[in-house]
Design a binder for these strands. Structure first.
Length: 413
DNA sequence: TCTGGGGTCCTAGGACCC
DNA sequence: TCTGGGGTCCTAGGACCC
């Protein structure tokens, strides 16, 4: 028996922990750059704020209805997520963190999984302040489906078995995990309107529409496990850092500064995982929504001579790539750096005839990175990152980082 | 004026090899 | 009239997830 524990409206719930008076009020959290609504309280959903709606389109709706709006505060959400997981871990020997707000737990062999789920839900609520829903099923896909029904019914916890046609018929095809908008359209054409009728579609048809991935989903819904629990997340293969700019950027100098910053952030993720990057890709693009402006987007990648985690080298190569794709005369909206083909630093392959860098450089880089990690960007940063950051993303309604910064700890009373 | 960011997997098709 | 067969590797694009 697999359990899926899913935090309700997670980002909104995190904000509410520290602002309890918002508990019954409509609240939304915006994406980076205050772009779209990515989390909505139930009250905000009822008012009619759509998921992913651009904020500028729903701003007046929010004002009319007194919706509390927040910029996203990923440091807070990341920390709260860790707290929830630490509570969940007490309830099962095997746990897979699936996303920032969802974990699978292996409840196989445990007595009365439903009662355990109810207890787990209550404990997480008491200890972290975050409300969760729990779905139970013989496969991951069925646990997901049970979770969706638990949320819909407001019961908090729900268990389903393979072949529970009544439950399956209450979930529309596009709400099945693994079936997105495109596949849903094609499945409806062959009679798959709900999870239940999807199961009647012959496997050969399923395969021709969605390949082996969709066939896996189909089997999982039938009760045959095809997706294993993954306790240790597999090593990442690429990592990316990209942002939309708070204002359009035209000049190369500003773009270079932004790209240098993204390169540093990306390589810090790589260093934190004990990996090395074998390649770099840089991309830039204009605002695709502006039909009145000339559009341009481009990307270029290169392979490094030697796998690296050196921010100096990564910044230099990223700037070279940027210069090769930069075209003057455009208003750029977004840029990004992707580090490719990550390998473990333990399996490092050096150069045969040449060796880049030396120990002194390495010690210097490590020292700067440690200072930056310990004291923040004000403690130390690479000159290429610049100081002004006029292109920085908007984040005008962000709450304090209550749980991760001493100076931002909440005070009550 | 204003429209997110970060991933994975699969497949088709082209280039190339013998 | 007639134009092989079998393989690998890489990339771009499409689909999905949160």
């Amino acid at each position: 028996m697999i359990a899926l524990a899913d935090c309700n409206n997670f980002y909104v719930s995190c904000e509410r922990v520290f602002r309890p008076h918002l508990r019954d009020r409509p609240v939304i959290v915006l994406s980076n750059n205050d772009g779209c609504a990515v989390a909505r309280s139930n009250e905000a959903k009822e008012i009619g704020v759509p998921m992913g709606a651009p904020y500028h389109q729903i701003k007046s709706l929010c004002q009319r209805n007194g919706v509390q709006v927040f910029s996203s505060n990923y440091e807070l959400y990341g920390d709260m997520s860790g707290r929830v997981v630490s509570v969940l871990r007490r309830f099962a020997p095997e746990l897979e963190v699936y996303s920032i707000d969802e974990s699978f737990l292996n409840f196989s062999g445990l007595a009365d999984p439903l009662e355990l789920s109810v207890r787990m839900r209550r404990t997480v609520g008491q200890w972290t302040g975050i409300p969760i829903s729990v779905g139970l099923g013989p496969t991951k896909t069925l646990a997901k489906l049970a979770n969706r029904l638990a949320k819909k019914m407001g019961s908090g916890c729900m268990q389903i078995e393979a072949g529970d046609l009544d439950a399956l018929s209450r979930v529309a095809i596009e709400d099945v995990w693994g079936v997105g908008r495109r596949l849903a359209v094609r499945l409806r054409r062959v009679g798959g309107l709900t999870a239940r009728s999807f199961l009647q579609v012959p496997p050969s048809v399923v395969r021709s529409i969605g390949g082996v991935t969709l066939e896996r989903t189909w089997r999982e819904l039938h009760g045959t496990p095809c997706l294993d629990m993954e306790e240790l997340p597999p090593a990442r293969k690429n990592t990316c850092c990209s942002r939309s700019f708070g204002k359009p950027v035209t000049g190369l100098v500003e773009l270079e500064e932004a790209v240098a910053n993204y390169a540093v952030r990306a390589i810090r993720k790589v260093r934190a995982e004990g990996s090395l990057a074998c390649g770099i890709q840089v991309f830039v693009m204009t605002n695709r929504f502006r039909e009145d402006q000339a559009q341009y987007s481009n990307a270029r990648a290169l392979s490094l001579d030697e796998p690296t985690d050196d921010p100096i080298r990564v910044i230099r190569r990223a700037k070279e790539l940027l210069r090769s794709i930069y075209r003057p005369g455009y208003s750029y909206k977004k840029a990004g750096v992707i580090l490719l083909d990550l390998v473990s630093s333990h399996s490092r392959q050096g150069l045969l005839f040449e060796d880049f860098g030396n120990d002194r450089t390495r010690e210097f880089v490590d020292a700067v990175e440690e200072v930056a990690a310990r004291y923040g960007t004000m403690g130390g940063f690479w000159a290429a990152q610049g100081i002004d950051h006029s292109w920085r993303m908007r984040r005008e309604m962000r709450t304090p980082r209550y749980t991760t910064h001493w100076s931002e700890i909440p005070e009550f009373g």
